[in-house]
């Protein structure tokens, strides 16, 4: 892909010499449009980050616009000293770490056999998987299964029921199919190397890019999801961060009691600031891995698109 892009940019360059006025205006318009888009997307993000580094008073009096006003880390101090948030953060790390391990392992365990041409029944198996993309039992029937298994209100409810995605299986299968030649597997077989050993010591080391894609996809999904936690969990000490955030950011549950007007006002201002800081804190892990995400996610989409 890079090669093609490079070729294309050369082409554009050679075009530029005799570009007509109409074309130059058109191109100018495109630059302007993209610049506008950039501003529209960046502004809310910058505004949120700047607010989170401002003082509570500056935020609630609406003085923040582009840069932090009265720089302060108070919002972060409050966020990180809130036991609910800290527990949620730890829980989310737990769910993301173990959930991703389970998801990636299971996905490879079915995607690799599906990629082997000599594996009898692969078409039926594929149909068996794809059907679940088209039709599902729905919320309540799935809930009843989780309930029957005794997973309700346990950590398992977030690790197992949504462990696998058919889309991810297809991506992994397509990758194996196109990058592990059948001849290699046959040669290994002739040498007395079993399928599992071949998978472990030949396929996996050759498949680091797809493993990275799967890890990122599942990890981000797990970190960002709140729905399963909402329906399966009751105990707040099991809540992942997203559900804690929902309580604080959307339902506005702040501890209130009898207090005078002054503390009330301060508390309200603090609650406003806290929201901005929380948004930043909760998105931090994804932000840190974003460079990898950008690289590998694109790859994943493209492998999937080959099939589509």
């Amino acid at each position: 892909m890079l090669g093609i892009q490079a070729r294309k940019s050369n082409q554009v360059k050679s075009n530029r010499v005799k570009e007509s006025i109409g074309d130059r205006i058109f191109l100018g318009g495109i630059y302007l449009f993209l610049l506008l888009l950039l501003v529209i997307i960046l502004f809310p993000l910058i505004y949120i980050v700047s607010s989170s580094f401002s003082s509570a008073l500056a935020v609630s009096s609406g003085r923040v616009f582009l840069f932090p006003v009265e720089f302060s880390l108070r919002g972060y101090e409050v966020a990180l000293s809130n036991p609910q948030i800290v527990t949620g953060y730890a829980n989310s790390l737990f769910y993301t770490f173990f959930g991703t391990i389970i998801s990636v392992t299971l996905t490879i365990a079915i995607a690799y056999p599906l990629s082997r041409r000599t594996f009898y029944g692969r078409n039926i198996l594929m149909a068996f998987l794809v059907f679940t993309m088209l039709f599902n039992g729905g919320l309540i029937p799935t809930y009843l299964v989780v309930k029957t298994l005794g997973m309700l209100d346990t950590r398992w409810a977030l690790l197992i029921p949504a462990a696998m995605g058919v889309w991810q299986i297809i991506i992994a299968r397509t990758f194996f199919q196109s990058s592990i030649p059948d001849e290699l597997a046959e040669a290994a077989e002739l040498d007395g190397c079993g399928d599992l050993r071949f998978l472990w010591s030949v396929v996996l080391p050759l498949s680091k890019p797809i493993i990275a894609v799967l890890i990122l996809m599942y990890a981000i999904f797990q970190w960002n999801s709140y729905f399963d936690a909402l329906i399966y969990l009751k105990s707040t000490e099991l809540y992942p961060l997203q559900l804690v955030l929902r309580g604080i950011l959307i339902l506005n549950t702040t501890a209130s009691g009898s207090m005078d007007a002054q503390t009330m006002l301060e508390r309200q201002q603090m609650a406003d600031l806290l929201k901005y800081s929380l948004i930043v804190v909760s998105s931090l892990p994804v932000l840190i891995i974003y460079p990898f995400v950008q690289r590998y996610f694109t790859k994943g989409i493209l492998i999937g698109a080959v099939k589509g």
């Binding site: 809310p44 960002n224 950011l249 959307i250 998105s283």
Partner: peptide, 11 residues
Amino acid sequence: YFISTVVMVSM
């Protein structure tokens, strides 16, 4: 794209 739904709605 990588912003969670909860954070998106809060924003």
